[in-house]
Computed example of a mutant assay.
Amino acid sequence: MKGTVIRTAEQEEYPHPQHDRFFLRDVVTTEINPALSLHRGRIEAGGEIRPHAHEGQTETFYILGGEALCTMNGEQHTFGAGCCVVAPPGVQHSLKNIGDEPVDLLAIFTPPLK
Rank of each mutant, 00 (worst) to 15 (best):
F79Q: 04
H16W: 10
D104S: 06
P111G: 06
I49V: 15
R42T: 15
F22C: 10
R40A: 14
H77C: 02
K96Y: 05
C70V: 15
T30Q: 12
P102M: 07
I43F: 08
F79R: 05
M1D: 01
V28A: 10
E10A: 14
Y62A: 06
R25D: 11
K2Y: 05
Y14H: 11
I63W: 07
T30D: 12
H39R: 13
P51A: 06
G82L: 02
T29D: 11
I43H: 06
R21C: 04
E67C: 08
L113Q: 02
G90N: 10
Q18P: 00
P88N: 09
E75P: 00
N97V: 08
H16G: 01
P88D: 11
L95C: 15
E67W: 03
G82I: 06
I98C: 06
G82F: 09
G99A: 05
M1L: 10
G47R: 04
A9F: 05
A35D: 12
M1G: 11
Q11E: 15
P102C: 03
E12N: 10
K96F: 05
E10N: 09
L38F: 14
E13K: 13
Y62P: 00
V103D: 01
L24I: 14
G74Y: 02
P34H: 12
I63G: 05
V27Y: 11
T71R: 13
L36R: 06
Y62T: 12
Y62N: 02
I43R: 04
I63N: 04
R7Q: 10
G47Y: 01
G47D: 09
C84F: 08
T4I: 14
P34G: 03
L106M: 15
H93W: 04
T78L: 11
T78H: 11
Q76P: 00
R21Y: 10
A81G: 15
N73E: 14
Y62M: 10
S37T: 12
H93E: 07
P102Q: 03
G82H: 06
L64A: 08
F22V: 10
T58A: 08
H54N: 13
P112T: 05
